[in-house]
Amino acid sequence: MLKILKYSFYDLIRSRWSYVYFLFYLILGFVLLFLNNDVSKAVITLMNIIIILVPLIGTIFGVMYFYNSKEFTELLLAQPIKRSSIFLGQYLGVAGSLTMSLVLGLGIPFVLYGLFKSNAIFDFTLLLVTGAFLTMIFTALSFNIALSNENKIKGFGYAVLLWLFLAVIYDGLFLMSLIIFKEYPLDSFSLVASMFNPIDLSRTLILLKLDISALLGYTGAVFKKFFGTNQGLILSIFMLILWTILPIWRLVYTSKKKDF
């Protein structure tokens, strides 16, 4: 598995896509800080980018890589290697290189602009951790889609739709249901609903740091317990881990059964 991971990883680095991705974040980080010169404000802008862009890139990249390396995968499948090692290796290679580009690309400019002296360091670290989680989750989801769809166009379509659904449509439906059922106690529902979407989940995690004073304005014991104590943080991270593990598990499970 490690060999395949290494191969995928180097393959990506050689194909320059990782560089492009890395450079994109590097430039983004520098531009943000150059224009604002204020780490706390840059962290807020960055949050929006991480929540939208990271899943999108993870999804597209995952699908693209899977379809592109299909012939190589089939070649590997003919060898006496465990299927789980092949797919896990490829997945970890892609997710790992994307995560590395993200963390380094954003980390370098912020460190150079005196992040360690600023008190935004915890917010920033949390941002990078959620970014890494989102990369892992969406790459895994896109691998699943690609594995289940032989047709490339269909696969791409589903992948983009998945992103669109989780990034925008889900929140729209969520908001509508909250407004329609506003006569009912909704605090547990709204927390549970945000757990079912990794993007909302990451957003909640970041909100816990950035907007805690607004979140505590709501009257409700469940909210208070969730946002006012460490419970929210622990539960969100736990759910993110679950969100990472489940698609990976399905990836391994389906790949074992699939007839190539």
Binding site: N48, A167, L175, L178, A214, L215, T219
Partner: peptide
């Protein structure tokens, strides 16, 4: 405004949909 009317929607703070 939405938060004033339906306070639970505060969990959607800073989401892309809200920004739109």
């Amino acid at each position: 405004y939405i938060v004033n009317k339906t306070p639970e929607t505060i969990v959607l703070l800073r989401s892309l949909f809200m920004d739109i």
